[in-house]
Amino acid sequence: MPVFKTPFNGYAVRFSPFYENRLAVATAQNFGILGNGRLHVLSLPPAPGAPLSEIVSYDTADGVYDVAWSESHDSILVAAVADGSVKIFDTALPPAQNPLRSFQEHTREVHSVDYNPTRRDSFLSSSWDDTVKLWTLDRPASIRTFKEHAYCVYSAAWNPRHTDVFASASGDCTVRVWDVREPGSTMIIPAHDLEILACDWNKYDDCLIATASVDKSIRVWDVRTYRQPVSVLNGHGYAVRNVKFSPHHRNLLVSCSYDMTVCMWDFMVEDSLVGRYDHHTEFAVGVDLSVLVEGLMASTGWDELVYVWQHGTDPRAP
């Protein structure tokens, strides 16, 4: 399956919600510690066996930690940049006019962005300054700021069915559930004993959240009964960096970890580990599942490689 070599270390990968053969990759120089960043927009080859081709790429002055596609315009991308800015790129515009916007409000690195999939007019950014910010493209500043976490917020994710609800995962070992109409968080889940690096909502059960933590485990929580996790998924050898529920199957989720593997899980069965892919030779930090093509996965990592493959096949197979 196709592979793409990025000049910098990969940080995040996202499939386009509009085009089944397009994806965006966020990268940062020197492992994201020091240096520039680059955002790639890649195209899958029409025939299997050919490499991924680059449509366009954008340079930034600092590393790009995350990227999200707009759900309202097929050419617009939101990038989380390590200098604290959130930048909007439009691939339909000439390179000189990009970035279209740059929002500079976070005082520390922005670690994740997520576009609202239901109302499709707003997005969230979460930052190491402990806050989550809500933005729309038509406003020059953020609409509001959610500040309750006591440590870096590593991830914020919209509920795919409740358009005003989202969850945030933080290094303060909690996941908080928010409603944008409420002044404070509506729920605090002390989900792990160590830092939580990512969270995601189940697409078919709007009350389920998965959390990925430094304690090497993934836990699935029901927000109605959050004293005990619905499921605990053990199997990663190091901190779990990212987690995503499948857009096509209720019980499947995918994760990537500092143990350099990408894993597929079924959280409802005893032997929950469905598949393990060890194609990365450095930390695997970005993973995504295609909404438009069932079973199509993408991952990126510090080995500067982007893999796209069908679940069940070898990502390295030519």
Partner: peptide
């Protein structure tokens, strides 16, 4: 579900109507 039903309108309208909007904080 424990969630309130969604409000109609755009995100900015909904947030402003709820009185929680603080632009550019």
């Amino acid at each position: 579900t424990p969630f309130k039903p969604p409000s109609p309108g755009t995100t900015s309208d909904v947030v402003e109507a709820s009185g929680t909007a603080r632009p550019g904080e």
